[in-house]
Design a protein around this nucleic acid. Sequence first.
DNA 1: CAATGATCATAC
DNA 2: GTATGATCATTG
Length: 202
Amino acid sequence: MLTIPKLLNHCENIAGLTIAELAKKHKVDLNTNNKGIIGQLLELELQTEAKNKALPDFIDLGVELKTIPVNDDFKPLESTYVSMVSFNNMPRWSKSFVRLKLLKVLWIPILKKKNIHTSEICYPIFKELSLEDEYILSKDYEELCEIITFGDEPRAHLGKFMQVRPKALNSKIRSTSNNEIRHPLGFYLRSSYTKKIFNNFI
DNA sequence: CAATGATCATAC
DNA sequence: GTATGATCATTG
């Protein structure tokens, strides 16, 4: 049975590998424009369960896997996608998928080099949501949801740790929700939040 | 040079 | 088409 210590151990064992090395093991072609290729490679290696469900990657453990690019100072370079905004179902924070996914996150920093092949897998950071952070995230979430429920689209500058941004194949994509036609949106963690987590860890 | 809005690939 | 994995590229 998979446990969190086993999972962390697995991650520690592959820390230091380059993306090319891991890709070779799984016979994955890195010559693609697939922006999610590194995340999918780690899913293969760690054998995640959730696939494209709106659940944490390791369902039984309630652990969400996130790869995130970092620079030489271990500073996150990008925001982090959490989940889609579900217009038809806007639960309160306590019942939300966002909360469920963020309760336990296994962060795998990827030391980003000019070339994806030589980018390196770093030591994992396992982080459970602190009460302080949860309070702020819940406020962000409720504020953003209120705007969405009203029928508006929150601007990306709203939210201290979490924001709402477009999430689609392209800007022309629309999704239907009840009787409305809306621009698909996703919840994202700001890099200021992940920076804070990583700083506290070091 | 960080932030926002746009976009890429793939599974189902 | 909707979800997953995200990063890209233009702007301020």
